[in-house]
Design a protein around this nucleic acid. Structure first.
Lengths: 219, 219
DNA sequence: ATTTATTTTTAGATTTGTCTAAATTTTAAT
DNA sequence: ATTAAAATTTAGACAAATCTAAAAATAAAT
């Protein structure tokens, strides 16, 4: 079965909303997709006809197994393309989303399998989000602070605990930003400070206080 | 300005037909695009409104400079993606056309510039067709058909006259592809068939019809 | 130079995906 | 338990891209 770009975008949005909220409503989708609620209702009826979701008028929708499978295949494509754009074409991590939004709708399954192999079967995209395998299996990684990360683990920076300018200044001076890949080399018992290694850079030290505010995902 | 996939496909088809035939007609386009003539007329009027071509009812169309520029940018994308698919993802050269037809409509100019650099600024796609540069410039390599080649000459296959799957299948069975070196041993006056020698292979015979569609460059 | 055939265009319909405005249903509040 | 507010659906319209059937223009044939 082949689906349109619009249909795929609805399925993807429903999947995303479903993560935090079992039943996805028309208004939530309307906000997520920047589309009027009336248009959402129309599309939900069509997707329900196509067996991609269960639609109960006035109550909301839930993806069927087929819907979930489709969602994961689109997410797989999106994240593999993001990885390609950053790792091979040297794009900045925050510039790739819109391009991947287009590439994810290219339909050839063989293309994606070969791309995956070419990239060396990466497990996470440049934002640290896990890439589903060809069967739709995906390891759910949750955010943890650098302080909680275990020694030896590799991770990607996904955010920071506060937005103070003094923190942001410090991070930028140390070349740490969203999408930065790092490896935790050592943790000192005495003061909780950590030694981390960034790509192409010498090992640097971060205080426990700083390690607490940096959020990461293992990769 | 941004154009739909359908619009881009019309522009590409007109460009292709314009190469051999100054004025492109509704019926030619109808055949090329597998679309009914009435639909073609509608689209031509729209593309004319958008200044991509000059449309004279009942007489046919011609691309404007903007139309040509758009055509060349799509062809550039198509051929770069084909090169990527063959050189990086190890696709067979005859399997990449349909995938490139989808990829060529992804809109980011930055993506294409980076892809070009990543690939090392290739000058020709896997079919031997030249890749326009970012300004739309393209070196026209003068090809001749195997039929025109003189007996005794050595040559390299640079492309084929059409992209039909029956032709591509036949060529792959005979181990003939882009870059294949051959020597023309003999031409039979009776039916125009030719005997050619490929490296490490016995002499094989090709029909005149096949010899006509195989494009080569002497070496 | 008419007539016939071919090509092209017009007219009207269809599907997809969207919209606005109005009606309906559910939820919240008194 | 009614009423007011919010969410959702229905109804009708529109643009893009296609189609079929009929009309008009051009080209070919006698």
């Amino acid at each position: 079965m082949n689906f349109s770009t619009a249909e795929e975008n609805y399925i993807k949005a429903i999947w995303r909303l479903q993560q935090s909220d079992e039943n996805v409503t028309t208004n939530e989708l309307s906000a997520e997709l920047q589309t009027k609620p009336a248009s959402v209702t129309d599309m939900l009826k069509r997707l329900s006809e196509k067996k991609l979701l269960h639609y109960a008028p006035y109550y909301g929708v839930k993806l069927t197994p087929e819907g979930k499978k489709l969602a994961l295949s689109i997410i797989r494509k999106h994240r593999l393309w993001e990885y390609f754009l950053v790792e091979k074409l040297q794009f900045n991590w925050d510039a790739v989303h819109d391009i991947a939004e287009e590439l994810e709708h290219v339909s050839s399954p063989e293309l994606i399998e070969r791309l995956d192999a070419f990239l060396g079967y990466p497990k996470a995209d440049p934002h640290g989000d896990p890439i589903p395998d060809s069967k739709g299996r995906m390891t759910i990684t949750s955010n943890l602070s650098l302080q909680q990360l275990e020694v030896g683990a590799a991770a990607v920076v996904t955010g920071v605990g506060d937005q103070s300018s003094s923190l942001l200044e410090l991070l930028s001076q140390k070349n740490i930003g969203i999408g930065t890949k790092l490896e935790l080399k050592q943790r000192h018992a005495f003061d909780g400070s950590v030694e981390i290694k960034l790509r192409n850079q010498p090992i640097i030290t971060l205080s426990e206080q700083l390690a607490k505010t940096i959020l990461v995902k293992t990769v």
